[in-house]
């Protein structure tokens, strides 16, 4: 079983191993800042992996998953505001809140499909965004300053504790996803994506599976948001701005949406490009270093025009097979 998972998802395992040992690299070369970059990559990568359950495997393009990150983050922020510092409790709160919210939004949104689904999920996310902007008590859009949560036995202010907390939750989510995608549920979800009526003809209720997938993805985004709040020591509605939902989608498409590891690869490349492209431009064309997006934009177009199936598809890792092939 374990060996089987290893064979099927080589790229993901390699990334996890690299992430596990990355702090050794940074401490050897005295680059503590890069731990921070990688924490952000892991957090957004985790959210993107969650989104990809519905997005890549279920074929439901949700344009509102940043809202679940936001709800997760505010679960941490608001709990702490009222003196509930326990991080495990906050994670549980995030999961439960996002689960309930996921059921409610998913139930209404899944009445639609295609582009209509994209827009209705955006609509719900925008409502939540404006709701948190109007919460004056918690700082509105100026946000809420908070401390890192208190994970009993783990003092997050000690070096690397937060890094490994995020890493282990990411690893747990990854392993769960590998199992999920290969389970009966995962197979049916992917079958719904390629032909919903055939699944229905088999006597299954597609809505039930789609809704379950939607809720699981919402919960994962919520966990990511809850940890994001501790990482940032600050919560504001900015975390759930629609452009972040867009970022998550871009990360997935960039990495390859039919692969479990795709979103993580996408997050690594996307955020490293953000990090390095301006520096690089500053060396090559200093006059447009501030306008680095003029290079970044066409790069995205090039990935679409010249590659299929995102970077995982372009690189064509021979160890990695798509978990599901796209019906063209």
């Amino acid at each position: 079983m374990v060996l089987d998972l290893f064979k099927k998802f080589t790229t993901l395992w390699i990334i996890l191993v690299v992430l596990a040992f990355f702090p050794i690299f940074t401490s050897t070369f005295d680059l503590p800042f890069w731990n921070d970059v990688v924490m952000r990559i892991m957090l957004l990568g985790m959210a993107a992996m969650g989104l990809n359950i519905v997005f890549g495997f279920g074929g439901m393009v949700s344009f509102g998953h940043a809202a679940f990150m936001g709800v997760g983050a505010y679960c941490a922020g608001i709990s702490q505001y009222y003196g509930l510092d326990n991080g495990w409790y906050q994670l549980l709160m995030s999961a439960v809140s996002c689960g309930i919210l996921g059921i409610m939004i998913g139930f209404l949104a899944l009445r639609t499909s295609g582009i209509y689904f994209i827009m209705i999920t955006l609509a719900f996310a925008q409502m939540l965004y404006f709701f948190f902007v109007s919460l004056e008590q918690f700082g509105g859009d100026d946000g809420l300053i908070m401390d890192r949560s208190d994970f009993i036995f783990i003092d997050l202010y000690e070096p690397l504790r937060l890094y490994y907390l995020i890493f282990f939750i990411l690893a747990a989510v990854s392993i769960m996803l590998m199992l999920l995608i290969r389970s009966r549920f995962g197979v049916i979800l992917q079958a719904i994506k390629s032909n919903e009526s055939r699944v229905e003809a088999m006597g299954l209720n597609p809505l039930k599976f789609k809704l379950t997938g939607y809720v699981i993805s919402a919960v994962i985004c919520g966990l990511s948001g809850c940890l994001f709040a501790s990482w940032q020591e600050f919560v504001s509605p900015d975390i759930m701005h629609w452009t972040r939902s867009g970022d998550l989608m871009i990360i997935i498409i960039l990495g390859g949406l039919t692969y479990v590891a795709g979103p993580l690869v996408g997050a690594i490349v996307f955020l490293l490009l953000e990090e390095l492209l301006p520096d690089l431009l500053h060396v090559v064309f200093p006059s447009i270093a501030e306008n680095w997006m003029i290079i970044f934009g066409p790069l995205l177009i090039a990935v679409v025009l010249f590659g299929k199936g995102g970077l995982m598809g372009v690189v064509g890792n021979r160890f990695t097979r798509p978990a599901a092939r796209k019906d063209q």
């Binding site: 503590p32 800042f33 921070d36 970059v37 946000g143 940032q232 600050f234 900015d238 975390i239």
Partner: peptide, 20 residues
């Protein structure tokens, strides 16, 4: 450094300025 008007980017930049 360019904060892009994003709290998480700002936070990361502050880290870079402090640690790197």
């Amino acid at each position: 450094v360019d904060d892009q008007r994003k709290p998480d980017v700002t936070k990361q930049l502050a880290n870079k300025l402090l640690k790197s």
